[in-house]
């Protein structure tokens, strides 16, 4: 699904990612953990092609294609989805309009027929019910006046609608209490499947109790300091990042 080799990336001329190698197979869920400033969010922006996040060396191959050729929206159409740590507010743009426009834009690029209002609403209803998203939320501006939990549920709703092949979830747990976390995790787990891969970025092990990864990687100082199975997360929880961070510096 995704093959990252020797990836270096700059932000504002400062090197943040310093040689990342990562391979994610179909249907696999990988978790990236790491302390603040280790480059977790930078990795998610590089994968989605955000301006200002410049790849200076290395390659990202996604489903056999070099990602660097693709614009942000082309990557989205190719099935890359980024769940934002801080979902952006779009005042005046109703959630329903936004979701329909996005879904049809992606469908158009994928060569599928656009959905009319009725087809779209039918599809939307299925997901809003599962994620406990009220009509009021859909009427409001995208993320405007949403609570932390509502924002994250809205991200999962978008993911469900857009049906990505590969989802990057950037600190989906931040700002959530335990009940909200469960709802969001259930939403994510419902979307797991043999054809869909995920990269779950988190600071805390807690999220991984609910979204159980196949592999865990520790990111420190722009490199993957260690990789392992899900038990690695528990080890981290116990020992903290200290060992990995200093270890990387020594290397």
């Amino acid at each position: 699904m995704l093959e990252i080799k020797g990836l270096h990336a700059d932000v504002d001329g400062k090197e943040i990612l310093k040689g990342i190698d990562l391979s994610i197979g179909e249907g696999e869920v990988h978790a990236i953990m790491g302390p603040n400033g280790s480059g977790k969010s930078t990795l998610s922006y590089v994968l989605s092609g955000r301006d200002g996040y410049d790849v200076t060396a290395g390659t990202i191959t996604y489903r056999g294609r070099d990602l660097s050729e693709l614009s942000i929206e082309e990557r989205a159409a190719e099935g890359i989805f980024l769940g934002f740590q801080y979902p952006v507010e779009l005042p005046g743009v109703s959630s329903t309009t936004f979701l329909k426009t996005a879904l049809n834009a992606v469908r158009r690029q994928r060569g599928q027929d656009e959905l009319d209002a009725v087809q779209f609403m039918k599809r939307l209803r299925v997901h809003t019910k599962a994620l406990n998203i009220s009509d009021d939320m859909l009427r409001r501006g995208v993320n405007v006046g949403f609570s932390g939990g509502e924002k994250k549920r809205n991200e999962i709703l978008q993911m469900a609608l857009l049906e990505p092949h590969f989802a990057v979830l950037d600190e989906t747990d931040s700002g959530l209490d335990i009940d909200a976390l469960k709802v969001v995790a259930e939403g994510v787990n419902a979307l797991r499947g043999p054809k869909r891969s995920m990269l779950v970025i988190t600071h805390y092990q807690r999220l991984l109790d609910y979204i159980v990864p196949d592999y865990v990687h520790v990111l420190a100082h722009g490199r993957i300091a260690r990789s392992g199975g899900k038990e690695l997360a528990l080890e981290l929880e116990e020992k903290g990042y200290g060992a990995f961070v200093s270890g990387t510096e020594a290397a």
């Binding site: 929206e73 934002f84 779009l90 005042p91 005046g92 743009v93 834009a105 501006g141 857009l162």
Partner: peptide, 29 residues
């Protein structure tokens, strides 16, 4: 907002669609 444009484009909107949508939102009142 750069963030708004990026958010919309990450969901598959072209830059012109994203711009139009954000500006329409700005004008909604």
């Amino acid at each position: 907002s750069e963030d708004q444009l990026f958010y919309c484009r990450q969901r598959g909107l072209s830059d012109e669609e994203a711009l139009s949508m954000i500006v329409n939102g700005f004008c909604k009142q």
